[in-house]
């Protein structure tokens, strides 16, 4: 029986005079990996952030497990089972790997000691580097740290904003494999934003295409991969 984990209904938001989202509707079922692809500036990051309440929705509704979280303060949303690995990773550069992880748990009111072993098992590299400063990690390690830090809050729903950004293909494949692993083994629900549409659509059960604040297409990963418009716009040339 499929149940809806996240439901975004006709969401509009923006920054000042900039209207970044103009009525976006999508849903993510429990245990699903859903990907959102779109060009630069389409509003993908804005969507992930406004699910977390920052920027706040100007109209529309966001439901998490049947609960309306549209007007909830950000820090309460993040305590109710949502975690985000933000665009550009944004780890705390002068703090150690361990401190970064501990912060992820404490910000959401979780006990770090209980979550650490799981995250270290998932990313053994982080265990080795635990006392190193975050800013001195390689790009791939920083991405692991950003995801690990998000997982420390024991989320039901993980929001990932361009985890493959700026990573070598081999490393980004590893990251994607970890996401699949998390989803298959622990049933973690994932909403994945990517510009790397090829890999993302292969990984995801379903996908949406966002163009300047509006959803223009949706379907299963395989379906979208097969569409000629997608091939031209998001897969062409590149890899």
């Amino acid at each position: 029986m499929k149940t809806t984990m996240l439901e975004v209904d006709n969401l509009a938001t923006g920054y000042g005079a900039v209207q970044a989202l103009k009525g976006v509707s999508l849903h993510v079922d429990r245990g699903e990996i859903v990907t959102l692809i779109g060009a630069n500036g389409a509003g993908k990051s804005t969507l992930l952030m406004s699910i977390c309440g920052d920027p706040r929705a100007r109209s529309g509704r966001i439901m998490l497990d049947g609960e309306d979280i549209t007007a909830k303060p950000t820090h309460e949303i993040m305590r109710s089972g949502v975690a985000q690995s933000p665009e550009g990773r944004r780890i705390f550069p002068r703090m150690s790997v361990l401190e970064n992880l501990v912060l992820g748990a404490q910000a959401a009111g979780q006990d770090p000691a209980q979550q650490l072993p799981r995250v270290f098992d998932l990313f053994p590299r982080l265990r080795e580097r635990q006392s190193q400063r975050g800013g001195t990690l390689s790009g791939g390690e920083q991405q692991m740290l950003a995801i690990g830090r998000a997982l420390m809050s024991r989320p039901r729903l993980l929001l990932l904003d361009e985890p493959s950004l700026g990573l070598a293909p081999l490393i980004s494949r590893q990251i994607f494999a970890t996401i699949r692993d998390l989803n298959e083994r622990e049933g973690l629900t994932v909403l994945l934003v990517e510009q790397n549409a090829n890999q993302a659509l292969r990984l995801a059960h379903r996908g949406y295409v966002l163009v300047t604040g509006r959803i223009t297409m949706s379907g299963s990963g395989a379906e979208l991969l097969a569409r000629p418009e997608i091939r031209d716009a998001y897969l062409g040339g590149g890899h």
Partner: peptide, 12 residues
């Protein structure tokens, strides 16, 4: 270190 990251983590 990073206010935006703090928001994404849910720090009040």
């Amino acid at each position: 270190e990073d206010e935006i990251a703090c928001r994404a983590l849910g720090i009040n």
